[in-house]
């Protein structure tokens, strides 16, 4: 139970950002809801999954048929629903991830996708224009008009930063207790590493607050040094 609660807490930021994005979206096109529900169901339990496959294919074929007859709105609504549901689907799959690396990469992907949709969707809450802005955002990054992949429109930082801080703590604990059947063990090694990471987070937050332009450089340097130290310490041969 505790492990489940920790996992949910760890994945709360992408969910919160997605819900904030959805709150401002125009759901007058019901195909958006259909798209979202079918995609969410497909990543649900095994029993519901096969029913959801039908829920994905039937509307998809139907809307393609309508598109061919000149009605583009249902097709666009369905596709928009898929896109809007993608951070939540990624979150669900991350929740059931068994490895620490899978948990970390899933968390990152879900977080980034929700930020992307929030930033794009902020400009237009209509399914028809969601695509255009999404593609524009990606092409502008590829053509190097922008350096940052995250759109300029971001959720309120105060709220998300607090939530992310708590989620990070939960994420770290979840990473360490990922083995099924094994309860969380607070051993000196784990505790020391946890304290070190919390301390580094505190220092980095202060750097980000007072010297925001130095954050990236400081983080990169620290990570490279840590990776080097790890590689050096592990080079010894076994007995």
């Amino acid at each position: 139970m505790m492990a489940k609660a920790l996992r949910i807490a760890a994945l709360s930021p992408p969910v919160a950002i997605s819900l904030m994005a959805l709150a401002e979206f125009d759901f007058s096109n019901y195909y958006v809801v259909v798209g979202m529900v079918s995609l969410l169901l497909i990543s649900s339990t095994e029993r519901v999954k096969w029913a959801a496959v039908g829920l994905v294919y039937i509307p998809a074929i139907y809307t393609v048929g309508l598109l061919l007859t000149g009605q583009a709105a249902p097709f666009l609504g369905l596709a928009a629903g898929y896109i809007l549901a993608s951070p939540l689907v990624l979150t669900i799959s991350t929740y059931s991830s068994r490895s620490a690396s899978g948990l970390l990469s899933g968390y990152f992907t879900a977080y980034t996708t929700s930020l992307l949709i929030y930033g794009v969707e902020g400009k237009s809450a209509q399914p028809e224009t969601l695509f255009i802005h999404l593609v524009r955002n990606i092409t502008s990054f590829i053509t190097q008009e922008r350096v940052n992949f995250v759109p300029p429109e971001t959720p309120p930082t105060n709220l998300i930063a607090s939530l992310t801080a708590l989620a990070t703590l939960a994420l770290i604990i979840t990473m360490a207790s990922r083995r099924p059947g094994l309860s969380l063990k607070i051993k000196p090694v784990f505790l020391n590493a946890l304290i070190m990471s919390v301390a580094s987070l505190t220092v980095s937050t202060l750097v980000a607050f007072f010297l925001p332009s130095m954050v990236s450089l400081a983080i990169l340097t620290t990570i490279v040094v840590l990776a080097f130290l790890t590689a050096v310490s592990l080079r010894g041969k076994d007995a």
Binding site: F141, N148, V189, S200, A208
Partner: peptide
Amino acid sequence: STIVIYHPLTLSMFAAAVFSFMYIL
């Protein structure tokens, strides 16, 4: 810290990375 910069996420990933390396060490 380079191309997907959003400070809460950046710091979160940094903390996770520090934890991973420190724990391994």
